[in-house]
Design a protein around this nucleic acid. Structure first.
Lengths: 128, 128
DNA sequence: CTACAACTTGAAGCGCGCTTCAACACAAGC
DNA sequence: GCTTGTGTTGAAGCGCGCTTCAAGTTGTAG
């Protein structure tokens, strides 16, 4: 069999075949060669899928990933803008996560007197 | 007018009225008093909505928020478990965000020779 | 009284990133 | 040849957290 079948690619990349087809439709993957109608991939596809995996894990949407892939080796203005925006988003995410931790640690304490005049008393009524 | 109408609550809490009704249906808010069929809220609802906002911002799902609200003042085992799990998730989120930043900073450099044997060359073909 | 804003409901829609389904074709092993 | 596995397609479904819609009721200002 010339080239890898989609199932094999999926196994190696840790992806469902449906996700691979989805990426192809979304324009993240090149149209592969076909043998009797079936996709046949070169092993290089695995590197590309790994890049996609990284971009997705980095919080890129599918269309951002597309921009990212097309421009990664020759950074364009478009690419630079994307990267900068993403850096800012990531910083915001980290800051938010820190705030969450602080809130969780303090049990979301409010300063109100014991129980009944507190929002929590209302919450109990809501959920109870 | 006795009590706050839903629109006023929405304005003060910075929420759409549809979201408030959604929270009520989801069991996060108590069923409010009614005047001629219309919801009338006590000002205390704003404190509760603020707690919900914090929990949501902290990455709690709606049903987690429900657990959180009902148990926040008397931490139960269920609540403790939720808090612990969330702390772990938050740590993972932060770690991932750091990795993203590193990846972005390095432009996702791969080590391959100039261009054509690289996944990026394939990516260009895909998106080109 | 007349407008018009704000409220009510249940049901449906949305965006994202896939997954699942139906219905079929082909491949590989016995 | 037959079975079983793997592939193909387009369309539909899912989960989440709301939002939007339709069609009606109520509140308020002039």
């Amino acid at each position: 069999m010339r080239g890898l079948a989609i199932g094999e690619v999926g196994r190696r990349a840790g992806l469902a075949t449906s996700a691979i087809r989805y990426y192809e439709r979304a324009g993240l993957l090149p149209k592969p060669a076909r043998a009797s109608g079936q996709r046949r991939y070169e092993p290089e596809i695995l590197g590309l899928l790994e890049m996609i995996r990284m971009a997705r894990a980095a919080g890129f949407t599918i269309s951002e990933t597309r921009i990212f892939l097309t421009g990664a080796d020759k950074p364009s203005a478009r690419w630079q803008a994307l990267a900068q925006r993403k850096r800012a988003e990531i910083d915001a995410t980290i800051a938010k996560a820190r705030r969450m931790k602080a809130a969780l640690k303090s049990n979301f304490r409010c300063g109100c007197a014991e129980t009944d005049d507190c929002a929590r008393a209302i919450a109990r009524k809501a959920c109870g």
